[in-house]
Amino acid sequence: MAINFKEINLSVIDITTNAAPDIFINQKGITFTKRVLEDLNYPQNVQYCMDAEKKVFAIRVCKSNEAKATAFSKPRGEQTATLSCNNKNIHDVITHMIPGYDSTKRYKVSGYLDAESRVLYFDMTEAEVSMFRASDKAE
Score class of each variant (00 low, 15 high):
R76F: 14
N45G: 01
Y42W: 04
E78G: 08
F32C: 11
L40H: 06
D14A: 13
F24A: 09
E7N: 15
K74H: 05
K63L: 08
I30E: 01
Y48C: 06
I25K: 14
I98E: 15
Y107H: 08
F72K: 01
P99D: 06
I25A: 14
T80C: 08
N26Y: 06
I59H: 03
S73W: 00
R106H: 02
G77W: 02
L37Y: 03
T104H: 10
I8A: 14
K55F: 03
K88A: 14
N26P: 08
G29W: 01
N26V: 05
A71E: 03
T82Q: 08
K54G: 06
P75A: 05
P21N: 05
T82K: 06
H91G: 12
K63S: 14
P99A: 03
S84P: 07
N89V: 15
N26H: 09
I30A: 04
N86D: 11
A58I: 02
P75R: 01
K74I: 00
T17G: 08
F5I: 05
I25F: 13
I8D: 12
N26G: 13
N9F: 04
I8N: 12
I30T: 03
I90N: 07
L10R: 08
G100S: 11
P75T: 02
K6F: 11
Q47V: 09
R106T: 09
S73R: 00
N41G: 05
I30S: 03
T31N: 04
T95A: 15
K54I: 04
A81F: 11
P43W: 00
K74D: 02
N26W: 06
D14T: 09
T33A: 07
F5W: 14
C85W: 05
S64E: 15
N4P: 12
M50N: 08
A69Q: 02
K54Y: 01
C62W: 00
E7M: 12
V61S: 03
T70D: 07
N87P: 01
P99L: 02
P43F: 00
T95S: 15
S103P: 06
Q79F: 02
F32E: 06
D102G: 08
K63R: 07
P75M: 01
K28P: 00
A67H: 07
Y101D: 05
I8C: 15
F72Q: 01
